[in-house]
Amino acid sequence: MDRASRPAILSADREGIAEAARLLREGRLVAVPTETVYGLAARADRDESVAAIYRAKGRPSFNPLIVHVADLASARALAVFDERALALGEAFWPGALTLVLPLREGAPVAAAVTAGLPTLALRCPAHPVMRAVIAEAGLPLAAPSANRSGAVSPTSAAHVVSSLGGRIDAVLDGGACAAGLESTIVALREHGRWQVLRPGPIPEAEIAAVLGCHSDAVTLRAIEAPGQLASHYAPGKPVRLEAPTAEADEFHIGFGEVGGDVTLSASGDLTEAATRLYALLHEAAAAGQPRIAVAPIPGDGIGKAINDRLRRAAS
């Protein structure tokens, strides 16, 4: 496939899924929809394929990747699961939860996936297209968000093409992503401790209910999983948060009673706001105003994840 014809846009039908799987088996890069955001997938067992993800995204090599698997059994072949990990997998997979677990000795995972760490980030996605691609390829797939590193994550095929263009081989167009925010990432520690490394669609309270105890605060600055960089999800313009009104040079993203130029949710629905967040940040980036203002967002439930992304976008 020559660079001028890249990326190929594939329909999310049987033929498109088969072609995406063929490209992945060959070591190519394919953007695939998940229930969270579009992921830039490559086979996780081949060094050169994983290296291609880092090159295409301009991603720093110390930032590890999430490996997507078909099911819990496939995950256990790659990482060490204790009773807590099994309970979380059974409760939330397939779904928007990523577990950071000890890498199993001899697991067929390229070294670059873990960025040299002794742990592996694993997720079993729920999106039917991503699940079909994993099954057809017959491989665990490394798949960070399908965008330039640090930029706004993609929730549509058009976002992927705009950000990565000819750097990748194909985009499997499955429409807009349902959740709109990257997965919740949980690290399980010794002595029953655990931490939320990245808030996401699955609230911390639901995880605590399964584990029977509250999480520990994240105090270390070390990068153990995606989404922990201080500056991330950036639209390329200054972003002002907690803004009930906008200045003349600001594109205003509203919420609830704050109308704005566009709104995350006129009814104040946080789930709708999460689904629309990245699409509206893309829209704000393309608008004529040089700055962006965002209305106050409540911090409960998935609002914690929304505010986490907005703080990093504003850094």
Score class of each variant (00 low, 15 high):
A287Q: 10
K237S: 01
A248F: 08
R28D: 10
L65W: 06
G227P: 03
A176Q: 15
P60W: 01
V129D: 10
H232N: 11
P226F: 06
R76F: 10
L141W: 05
I297Q: 02
A110D: 06
L241G: 02
S267T: 15
A70G: 14
I202V: 15
S153W: 11
L23N: 00
L101C: 08
K304N: 13
A170G: 07
P201D: 03
L229T: 00
P144L: 07
S231F: 08
G192L: 05
V160R: 03
I297A: 13
E257V: 15
H252I: 09
L139N: 01
Y54M: 02
A243I: 12
V129P: 11
I134D: 11
L241K: 02
R309N: 08
E90H: 12
R309Y: 09
V210D: 06
H191Q: 14
A143T: 04
M130Q: 11
V152P: 04
A111L: 09
F251L: 06
A51N: 09
E206D: 15
A73F: 10
E15F: 14
R240S: 13
Q195E: 14
D300I: 14
M1A: 12
A314Q: 04
A246I: 05
A137C: 01
F92V: 03
I302R: 13
P94Q: 13
A85P: 06
H191C: 10
I207A: 10
S183C: 10
Q289E: 15
P201G: 12
G27H: 04
G95I: 01
R148L: 13
L188E: 07
K304Q: 15
E190M: 03
L101Y: 07
L280T: 00
T34W: 11
K57Y: 00
R104I: 01
H191N: 14
C124M: 07
A21C: 05
G27Y: 07
V262L: 11
H127G: 06
S162Q: 14
A143E: 01
V129A: 06
A41K: 10
A91W: 05
T98K: 02
R311I: 07
